[in-house]
Nucleic acid binder design. Structure first.
Lengths: 340, 340
DNA sequence: TTGAAAGCGCTAACAG
DNA sequence: CTGTTAGCGCTTTCAA
């Protein structure tokens, strides 16, 4: 395809036209105050007339600095991430940074590939809910600044949405309602959020002298949540805390198809608060603060890029429980089979 | 920040280590069949050992080709787009392309800025539901290949999800149920999809001799949908077709808060089929095929980049209606006020 | 089949 | 304040 106007004007063409050296043109843009005002003006005028725009690729090669960052997530379609991505993108845009987006499809190798692919044209990374091993993350960090979201690795900058408090509150709330046996529908094994939440459930139930059933879901998806309804039914749990809202949503549907109503027969609590308000019945859920996490992560990353040093930041975002309509007193389970 | 291990290995380092010239290393990757098999193997081995990866920035500067594309959407958080983005990204990844993501926040100027910002390091664009004027799109197209999604501009490559058929089916379905007055909850004025759908509703209702109320929603969001419940209530419509599932979801909630049940008192149909199945009650909706659109768009774009010519492609994806639980015979509207 | 050498467009010492 | 020069890492003629 022939593109109109041929190739873009270069710095040398502007220089020639303006009767100065290429270096002067360069400086007119990057360090105007190093030049006499008239020169700057003259150069700018010529540049504007020629439609000159600095070639970021050339500059990147020359300086090793590119105004690009990349953000990698396990699954764009998981509703937790879009708000995070949007906030991150908006924050990056404020500083004139462009952002690459990578979807690892919940797959560590794919994530690795994406990072390597982006690296040469990327100043730094935001890795959200990374599925990579600590080793691999550290290895990448040795080459490029990285800010982690929901992954807690010492000495790496990270922003963590800590579900503990919210989960505690949820367990207490359930206990107050009279529940004695609850289930945790667990998320991906490699997920820090999941580990954190699971541990919090375990501790809180122990403290409350409640019985806990842990049910592993295949993935953090609606479908997996729906499938988890089966295993849940074969326990005697009267309430469930799901890894996230998506799983909770699936779970509720799965329960419904088994004739179990929420909250009448089983209470359900979600996490991330991302679908909760829009569901019917509205889901009692633990706050997510995804936008904040995205914004803060980019904040930190940009600051690192500027200062050229990595500080051991561990930014923790606290969570709380929002009560809605999917929890109530333990109901009667018509079809519950007693556990062994 | 001092990065361990210094900078990434270069082609020359590999060359030195392998006892060949830089040119040979380059060819070992880009044109292996130009070299003797042994040389290729040797180079690859050394490269792997050193962890060499080709620096795409340098290559881009040298060749003028960068393996980047950008995809720009009005709102990442609108559930229609994530699947589209994911599919696009996956398709691009197959060919080793990285993708920039831009969120225009439903704002034409912002969209313009994003495109200009990406352009210097981008081979081409996918513009989904662009809010830009035709002029501006054409102007950008003069510099870089663009594929449009859901925007119908003659002579530009575009993939269109045409809601007409689905909307027709929805109106017919509603007519069959006995509805005589229906409302269309309209989306963004600049949206091709919206224009298309609105026109289809208008024609189908005329054909069916139904009365049509058009209600403008502020934006394609849950909140706007919810707000639209008010205006809807002040009509005598017994059914509504919403611009998309998100608006439908909000609408149903807004209706509920006014004591109006769906489908008992009002029937509701969504579009895009992206939330529908997971809602309660499950939403009757018109299919969206967002993934297909994303994949095809990138397909076309990559083909353009390869062949260096723009063909006037107009790829239309048809839609159909999926019946679920939010439509039924016209009910009794307790609180309906007659329209003037 | 391989190497030498000349750039791609820009930036960054170093001089002047 | 401004020009000269030497690359950044890769590709690509042109020779050998």
């Amino acid at each position: 395809m022939r593109r109109a106007g041929g190739s873009a004007p270069t710095i040398s063409q502007v220089a020639l036209e303006a009767g100065v050296s290429p270096a002067t043109v360069s400086r007119a843009f990057s360090r105007p105050n190093m030049l006499s005002p008239e020169t700057v003006e003259k150069v700018h005028a010529v540049a504007a007339r020629l439609g000159y725009e600095t070639n970021v690729v050339a500059r990147a090669l020359s300086t090793g600095r590119h105004r690009n960052i990349a953000i990698v997530v396990p699954d764009i379609a998981n509703p937790f991430f879009p708000p995070l991505i949007r906030a991150a993108q908006a924050r990056a845009g404020e500083d004139g940074f462009s952002v690459f987006l990578g979807d690892s499809d919940e797959n560590a190798d794919r994530e690795d590939t994406l990072i390597s692919q982006f690296a040469p044209q990327t100043a730094g990374f935001v890795l959200a809910s990374s599925r990579l091993s600590e080793d691999r993350i550290t290895a990448h960090f040795a080459r490029r600044p990285i800010v982690l979201i929901n992954r807690d690795i010492a000495r790496l900058p990270r922003v963590l949405i800590d579900g503990s408090r919210g989960v505690e509150a949820a367990v207490d709330h359930l206990a107050d309602l009279g529940h004695r046996r609850i289930a945790y529908i667990s998320g991906p094994a490699g997920s820090w959020s999941n580990q954190r939440r699971r541990r919090a459930v375990r501790e809180a139930t122990r403290r409350q002298n409640m019985e806990l059933f842990v049910i592993q879901s295949r993935a953090p998806t609606y479908e997996a949540g729906s499938e988890a309804a089966g295993p849940l039914c074969s326990t005697t749990a009267t309430a469930a805390i799901a890894f996230d809202d998506l799983v909770a949503q699936g779970l509720i549907a799965g329960l419904a198809s088994r004739g179990l109503g929420v909250p009448d027969q089983i209470s359900v609590v979600g996490c991330d608060n991302v679908l909760a308000e829009r569901m019917y019945p509205q889901l009692t859920s633990i706050s997510g603060h995804a936008e904040e996490a995205g914004k803060i992560a980019v904040d930190i990353l940009l600051r690192m890029l500027e200062s050229h040093e990595a500080r051991d930041i561990r930014y923790v975002i606290d969570t709380e429980l929002t009560l809605r309509s999917t929890t109530s007193k333990p109901g009667h389970r018509r079809s519950a089979k007693p556990s062994p």
